[in-house]
């Protein structure tokens, strides 16, 4: 949480955002059926599906407005100008480039690529191993220079992945070889591990951290995944190459 003065400044902006959201909710709700029969229920204003969204929308607009008023009273209009000036000043662009902000981008990228990119398309074991490997090595080595390099490398890999799925390439490949995405992911894991190893081999501490990361990244998904898939009978989000093999071994 921020300090009080900055909180109030943020409140002005979040309050306005929420008020706008509230107005949007109201604008959508008035389009809902208000009278006539719907679903076997005789419709009057108090039965309408619009009633509750209208109420919620109105309350959000109101509370958002009140928040803006409270914050304005405390810091005044001058604060809005200050924020505006800050956003244009070089101090802001330094903030965008400072290490903790870069770490923030990296966490978000890793999470988003895992959830929206890998989980629905690649074998769960492979995607989880890749996710953990990248996530752990990016931050655990605790070196801003390595973080930047690894992050760039990962971004390139993501680009290749995007090309595979946004073009007809994937459908084309599926006809020729089995599990093209899984094989690509395997390549990603190996190349990322090798690339990261390059930074670690000269330093004993980094070497140790690298090994820990590698072991956790492989063991944790296997352990959790096998528990869920075979003991709890929860099918994995996407079952590809590794699961086909495990299935074969399990039902041997």
């Amino acid at each position: 949480m921020m300090d009080k003065d900055r909180l109030r400044k943020a409140d002005i902006f979040s309050g306005i955002t929420f008020s706008v959201l509230g107005l949007y909710i109201i604008s959508q709700a008035v389009k809902m059926p208000m009278k006539g029969s719907w679903g076997g229920v005789h419709n009057v204003w108090y039965v309408s599906p619009a009633l509750f969204p209208l109420l919620v929308g109105a309350l959000i607009t109101l509370t958002g407005g009140l928040l803006v008023r409270t914050a304005m009273k405390e810091v005044g209009f001058e604060a809005v100008k200050q924020v505006g000036r800050y956003l244009l000043s070089p101090a802001f662009s330094t903030f965008l480039k400072q290490e903790s902000t870069i770490r923030f981008y990296a966490v978000i990228t890793v999470l988003v690529s895992f959830v929206f990119g890998f989980v629905p398309r690649v074998d769960f074991f492979l995607s989880a191993i890749a996710f953990l490997l990248v996530f752990i090595l990016l931050f655990y080595l605790e070196d801003a220079r390595i973080l930047m390099k690894l992050f760039r490398f990962y971004a390139c890999q993501l680009l290749i992945f995007l090309v595979l799925f946004l073009t007809p390439l994937h459908t084309l490949l599926t006809g020729i070889i089995p599990y093209p995405a899984d094989i690509l992911m395997l390549g990603f894991i190996l190349s990322f591990a090798l690339y990261a190893h390059g930074f670690c081999k000269k330093n004993d501490l980094l070497k140790k951290k690298y090994m820990t990361g590698l072991i956790v990244a492989v063991i944790a998904p296997l352990f959790i995944g096998i528990c869920f898939k075979y003991l709890l009978l929860v099918p994995m989000p996407f079952e590809g190459m590794v699961i086909a093999v495990l299935d074969y071994l399990w039902y041997l």
Partner: peptide, 28 residues
């Protein structure tokens, strides 16, 4: 501020509105 807690609650209520309404099955 307490009002921020209420706003958070209202946002939750809005999320809860999403989907078919339970009485008349109207998609919201």
């Amino acid at each position: 501020l307490v009002i921020k807690g209420w706003i958070a609650g209202l946002l939750g209520l809005f999320l809860a509105c999403i989907g078919r309404d339970l009485l008349q099955f109207y998609p919201r």
